[in-house]
Design a protein around this nucleic acid. Structure first.
Lengths: 152, 152
DNA sequence: TCCATATAGATGCTATTGCATCTATATGGG
DNA sequence: CCCATATAGATGCAATAGCATCTATATGGA
């Protein structure tokens, strides 16, 4: 009568618990740094970065949503705020009447750029400081496997 | 003119980005599993587990707060909900007039136990499925370093 | 002892999240 | 062409998180 095979191993449970804790610790300290510098929240940076990478082609909200793994309604409102702040422009999609295309504005690029030094220092403090470069690469690799589709 | 040494390396930035994504993906799917089973949220489980581990001695809220890395006001309200549900008992602290002592109730233990199979399956699905046991151990180790005080 | 300061925990108010649902357009089959 | 169903995105409402602040007790000097 073996334990059910679906039961996670000890090390898996530990990895999960630490994923929660480590994320909470890092997230909290990064957000705090941005806030104390009078800058927008982390999610704004992430969205602006994706949009800047997408260039003048822009991105559809649902694409951004997949990229960021954000819930649809959360993204919808994040975009509202970004647009209200003038960092993102919404335009009706030419190919899809239901949709829109998002592009980053000049002000949006400027803000992302302005956030970077603070964000970078916060990342270094929350992550870099604790790991060698090789360890960070290993960590990135393992974490990547958690949300890429499995080989199945 | 070297780049400022405080700037995180490429691999550190990647590790951070994936920590966000991986956590969001895993958290979302675990919460969804619990909800669809009609069970309380993840944070309830974590709190109940810590309290159960603490045994009849119980825990002070600030201890639980450190354990879970929860913000003070969030924990205060989480405890409200747990107490309202009858899963946690609050008693005035004998040694510290400002404080209280939390203990898990019989119902709290029962609920934690009831949540575990669902939670375990969700963890296996979100984490275990993607990693070998050794990889999970490595991941746990690296994540642990992010929130333990550095050697400094 | 008395005061200044620190710590434990609660709480009013605002902002964000989550849920359920809604509208509108798209798409594939008959 | 028409309908059933799927997808893009928005939104009302309830729950939770975040911020600032408050009360109460503790603690370490002068």
């Amino acid at each position: 009568m073996p334990a059910p095979s679906s039961s996670p191993s000890e090390s898996v449970v530990r990895a999960w618990a630490r994923l929660e804790r480590a994320h909470r610790a890092a997230q909290t300290s990064v957000e705090a740094r941005l806030k104390e510098a009078g800058l927008p929240a982390l999610a704004w940076y992430d969205a602006l970065l994706e949009l800047e990478r997408a260039g003048s082609t822009g991105l559809r909200p649902f694409e951004l949503q997949r990229e960021m793994l954000f819930a649809q309604y959360n993204l919808s409102r994040l975009i509202d705020r970004l647009a209200a702040a003038g960092y993102v422009a919404r335009a009706a999609s030419a190919e899809d009447g239901r949709g829109q295309v998002l592009t980053i504005t000049r002000e949006g690029k400027a803000m992302r750029k302005r956030m970077w030094p603070v964000y970078a220092a916060a990342i270094e403090d929350a992550v870099g400081r604790h790991l060698s470069s090789a360890e960070a690469a290993t960590l990135a690799d393992l974490l990547g496997r958690l949300y890429s589709r499995p080989a199945s």
